[in-house]
Simulated assay, not measured.
Amino acid sequence: RIVVLVFVFLVIGVIVWILVLNWHRVELTVSIIGVASDALSWNMGLFGVLPCLTVGLVVYYVPIVVFLVFAKYNGKVVPKKLHSEYDCVWKEDSWVPAYFALAILTMLWSAAAMVEAQVYVISGTIARWYFSKDFETPTKTIRTSLRNAFGPSSGTICLSGLLIFVVRLVRSVVDNARQEGAPGLVNIVLRCCVNALLTAVDFLNKFTINFAAITGEAYCTSSRMTYELLRRNLLSAVFVETISSRLLVGIVFVLSAIYTIVACVILKAATNLGSDAYFVAAIAWLLLIIVLGYLVHVLDNVIDTIYVCYAIDRDRGEVCKQDVHEVYVHLPISRSLRQSNITRTLGV
């Protein structure tokens, strides 16, 4: 027990030390999170709509699972020789394995598409708030985003979900190959290239679905326009994507660890649960991780959406939300894009 507590406090200490060393970035990230929290406070209905979408996905799964169960009953009894004797065994029809594979792939694709649909709804809702005037309160923002997500932009969401599903599938295959320890320099280089490509696709797709929700453009058009938008404005998407996500994850870990330790101490002091107190504390930690993880997921998408909205504002030379510009103006300029612009200027 003492070793576990020492390990937990050691990890917390390392996280705090990293935060202190990068405090200038932490301050900017905290300001970005504050802006996103303010935007989310104007659209609290998202916390009710997003779980409903998840419930809808579960309801969608029910008939698929039922059909999978009944598919097992399609076949016939055939004789089979076992140890010099014949016995009767059940043989499924030839189409059953193919149906199982198709159903499982459909469920996985649907799950990925639902995640993208949630991102689309968040982005569309926050974008309507961002581009509204300060003295006006946008109405029916969530309803409009839902109608667009499952209407004109449903193809964009399905394509985005398919790409994410393929990326996850290929990455899983690569990870399995790495665990098997396939020798050879070629395999190592190939894995590095594949991981770099998958990371780039995953990263670009994240901002593409945000842009598609804001503008209503098709997926390929949104992908190209997103890249051009960020390139023209020299904005570092890596800072927003990486630093904010890591900080939020670190906050969740620290809060959940402190909460678990306090809960365990209280249970040991005020109850007679004995060793069961650790089990109760672990359950409390798991529930808190789920709740905070859900909040971080929503807040992270809000941050990305405001980031794209700010880039659109900057591209047009407009200021729709002054408080957002006061924070996002301190974002670092992308080094690669800055170097390309310098080279282009020198060439001219």
Results as ranks from 00 to 15, higher is better:
residue 10 L to A: 13
residue 11 V to L: 14
residue 14 V to M: 13
residue 14 V to E: 06
residue 19 L to F: 12
residue 22 N to C: 02
residue 25 R to F: 08
residue 27 E to A: 07
residue 28 L to A: 12
residue 28 L to Y: 07
residue 32 I to H: 02
residue 35 V to C: 02
residue 37 S to C: 06
residue 41 S to V: 04
residue 42 W to I: 03
residue 45 G to R: 09
residue 47 F to K: 03
residue 47 F to N: 05
residue 50 L to T: 01
residue 50 L to D: 03
residue 51 P to M: 08
residue 62 V to G: 05
residue 62 V to N: 05
residue 69 V to E: 05
residue 70 F to Y: 13
residue 74 N to R: 10
residue 81 K to V: 14
residue 83 H to I: 10
residue 85 E to D: 04
residue 85 E to T: 14
residue 90 W to P: 09
residue 94 S to P: 01
residue 95 W to E: 11
residue 97 P to W: 04
residue 100 F to D: 12
residue 102 L to I: 15
residue 104 I to D: 03
residue 104 I to S: 08
residue 110 S to Q: 07
residue 111 A to P: 02
residue 112 A to S: 12
residue 117 A to Y: 01
residue 119 V to D: 11
residue 120 Y to F: 15
residue 120 Y to G: 04
residue 122 I to Q: 04
residue 123 S to A: 13
residue 125 T to V: 09
residue 127 A to Y: 00
residue 131 F to H: 02
residue 140 K to T: 11
residue 143 R to Y: 14
residue 144 T to E: 14
residue 149 A to N: 07
residue 158 C to D: 00
residue 161 G to F: 03
residue 163 L to C: 10
residue 168 R to V: 08
residue 169 L to H: 06
residue 169 L to A: 09
residue 173 V to D: 03
residue 175 D to A: 11
residue 183 P to S: 02
residue 189 V to P: 00
residue 192 C to I: 14
residue 194 V to K: 05
residue 194 V to P: 02
residue 198 L to R: 09
residue 200 A to W: 11
residue 205 N to A: 15
residue 211 F to Q: 05
residue 212 A to W: 06
residue 214 I to G: 01
residue 217 E to K: 14
residue 217 E to N: 13
residue 221 T to S: 08
residue 221 T to I: 09
residue 222 S to F: 02
residue 222 S to H: 02
residue 227 Y to Q: 05
residue 237 A to H: 11
residue 241 E to I: 00
residue 242 T to P: 01
residue 244 S to T: 15
residue 247 L to E: 06
residue 248 L to I: 07
residue 249 V to W: 11
residue 249 V to P: 00
residue 261 I to L: 15
residue 266 I to W: 05
residue 268 K to V: 10
residue 269 A to N: 04
residue 270 A to W: 07
residue 270 A to H: 09
residue 271 T to R: 10
residue 277 A to W: 02
residue 277 A to D: 06
residue 280 V to W: 10
residue 280 V to D: 04
residue 282 A to R: 05
residue 285 W to Q: 13
residue 289 I to S: 01
residue 289 I to L: 09
residue 289 I to P: 00
residue 298 V to Q: 01
residue 301 N to A: 05
residue 304 D to N: 15
residue 304 D to T: 08
residue 307 Y to V: 00
residue 308 V to G: 00
residue 308 V to I: 15
residue 314 R to F: 06
residue 321 K to P: 00
residue 322 Q to W: 12
residue 323 D to K: 13
residue 325 H to W: 12
residue 327 V to G: 00
residue 329 V to T: 12
residue 330 H to A: 15
residue 333 I to D: 12
residue 336 S to C: 07
residue 345 T to G: 00
residue 347 G to L: 14
